[in-house]
């Protein structure tokens, strides 16, 4: 298979002086969908922010290789231009900046000279239509007064336009009703292909009914405690995270006082 798209080895991450990720290793190949599941506070969002290079997240040990190259010294914007995309759980509002202007600016940054300004309107219109988004959406200000569903559609719209190689979807299912969940999932499925790797971060199994993963990882207390096929997600649905959380408690108890 050659070089994996994303290869994380022994990753430790500090947030405001506290260690949140305690040695994570995982490897995503092109064309694969990996689901990362775990309870609240397990470090899921820390991993997505770290992969995107948020300045608050400090890598103390381990490596993140993207297409074989070490990312850790690269700033957020350089990672994005290289083809990494993060769909935010809570995307922030940018007053006075229209969706169209925002996406155009981002595409110029991502594609440089290859960006086709003449094709842009048409492309945006088509992408909005396939996500069931009204045309007026393009003139609204970024995430300003958006409903939960609109925010998530907007993230997937950007993903469609920016054509990343690696997409990290951070709780893209949260705050969606069942119809919105279906539209958003269909949008993601349309983007699946042999060159795109997806890391799907979710608390619940229900998203995986729509987007079938190749690999499922269970993240508890900053460590991947189990990896397996899609059936693992169903098992989690039935039994919950409790068995793993117990393990976590036991570990804590073994720490000398």
């Amino acid at each position: 298979m050659g070089t994996p798209l994303l290869e994380i080895t022994g990753l430790h991450v500090l947030v405001e002086g506290k260690e949140i990720l305690k040695g994570i290793s995982l490897s995503v190949e092109k064309g694969q969908v990996h689901a990362l599941m775990g309870p609240n506070g397990s470090g899921k969002s820390t991993l997505s922010n770290t992969l995107m290079g948020h300045p608050k997240y400090q890598v103390t040990q381990g490596k993140i290789l993207f297409q074989g190259e070490d990312l850790t010294a690269l700033k957020t914007d350089a990672r994005a231009r290289g083809g990494i995309f993060l769909a935010f759980q809570y995307p922030t509002a940018i007053q006075g900046v229209s969706v169209a202007n925002f996406i155009r600016t981002a595409m110029k940054a991502r594609f440089g000279e290859k960006f086709q300004p003449k094709e842009f309107r048409k492309e945006l219109k088509a992408a909005m239509a396939s996500l069931g988004v009204d045309e007026s959406f393009a003139t609204r200000y970024v995430n300003d007064g958006f409903s939960g569903g609109e925010k998530k559609r907007h993230e997937i719209l950007q993903m469609a336009m920016l054509k990343p190689l690696l997409a990290i979807l951070d709780e893209t299912d949260s705050g969606l009703d069942i119809d919105a969940l279906r539209t958003v999932s269909e949008g993601i499925n349309r983007l699946r292909g042999p060159s795109l790797g997806i890391l799907l971060i979710t608390h619940y199994q229900r998203l995986l009914n729509y987007i079938e993963p190749d690999v499922v990882h269970v993240l508890v207390d900053g460590r991947i405690v189990r990896s397996g096929g899609k059936e693992l997600a169903l098992e989690l649905e039935a039994k919950g995270y409790a068995p793993y959380e117990t393990a976590k408690t036991e570990q804590k108890e073994t720490v000398p006082q």
């Binding site: 990672r79 994005a80 935010f88 940018i94 900046v97």
Partner: peptide, 23 residues
């Protein structure tokens, strides 16, 4: 962070925010 995660350099991101503020 949001704007830079879309490939904008820090200065481009700041300028976009400021222009938006004056929109």
């Amino acid at each position: 962070f949001y704007l830079m995660s879309r490939g904008l350099k820090e200065q481009e991101a700041t300028t976009l925010i400021v222009n938006g503020f004056f929109e």
